[in-house]
Amino acid sequence: MLKRTFDIIVCSFLAVLLFVPMVVIAIVVKASSAGPVLFWSDRVGRDNQLFSMPKFRTMRIDAPLTATHLLEDPQSFITPVGRFLRRTSADEFPQIYTIIIGQMSLVGPRPALFNQDDLIALRTEKGVHKLRPGLTGLAQIRGRDEISIPDKVALDEKYLQERSVLLDTRIILETFLHIFQPKNVSH
């Protein structure tokens, strides 16, 4: 209950703080490429339940619906503003909404795409699927796009076993450091 209360308080504050930047981003996304401002991605949440997760659209509308790292040439699908949004993680701002309504948390394993069967199966095997997915998590600050699925799940499992307010606070602080010094973002 403490974690959920923390999520609501922090995300309500972030929604106010980021309102103007999100409006600016929305205008730039709409002006710079064809298609909607938001991309709603089908993701796997707590107890492997599907939900729709919003992000600012960073890819062209003709991009395949698959994990970016599985594309042969992901750069050819990313919009000019999309590179910046991904590098700074600003494309994730709309997820504040999913945290406020309880589909996500600030900290937890990043939600898998609906078709990432290997990741979903391994998380289920390790019990990680019982956690609410997060905007950020251990895998985000320990390697993000550069670590393998088994290593990601090992970090998710470590979070499951060691989760606490102190660990969540540390992950949030490290996430902010990574935003200002981006690394391990391959696309």
Rank of each mutant, 00 (worst) to 15 (best):
M1I: 05
T5C: 02
C11Y: 07
F13A: 15
A15W: 02
A15Q: 03
V16G: 07
V16Q: 01
V16A: 14
L17S: 08
L18I: 04
L18G: 04
V20D: 06
M22Q: 07
M22C: 15
I25D: 02
V28A: 08
K30Q: 06
S32C: 12
S33K: 08
A34T: 13
G35L: 03
G35K: 03
P36N: 15
L38Q: 02
F39W: 12
D42Y: 04
R43V: 11
G45I: 01
F51S: 05
S52N: 11
M53Q: 10
K55H: 07
K55E: 01
F56G: 06
T58R: 10
L65Y: 08
L70A: 00
L70W: 05
D73Q: 14
P74K: 09
S76E: 11
F77H: 14
I78Y: 04
T79Y: 04
R83H: 15
F84V: 15
F84P: 00
L85A: 07
R87V: 00
T88L: 01
T88I: 07
T88D: 11
T88V: 07
S89W: 09
A90V: 08
D91M: 03
F93E: 01
P94N: 06
P94G: 04
T98Q: 11
I101F: 03
S105R: 10
L106I: 15
G108Y: 08
P109L: 01
R110D: 09
A112M: 05
L113Q: 10
F114V: 14
N115G: 03
Q116K: 03
D117Q: 13
D118Q: 12
L119Y: 11
L122N: 08
K126T: 13
V128P: 02
V128W: 12
H129K: 02
H129D: 15
H129R: 00
H129V: 00
R132W: 06
G134P: 06
T136M: 02
Q140E: 12
Q140M: 11
I141M: 09
R142A: 10
D145P: 05
E146V: 04
S148M: 09
S148A: 08
D151A: 10
V153T: 13
D156R: 02
Y159D: 10
Y159I: 09
L160M: 14
R163W: 09
R163D: 09
V165S: 09
L166R: 14
L167N: 07
L167M: 15
D168G: 11
T169D: 03
T169R: 06
R170P: 00
R170S: 12
T175M: 04
L177W: 13
I179K: 08
N184C: 05
V185H: 13
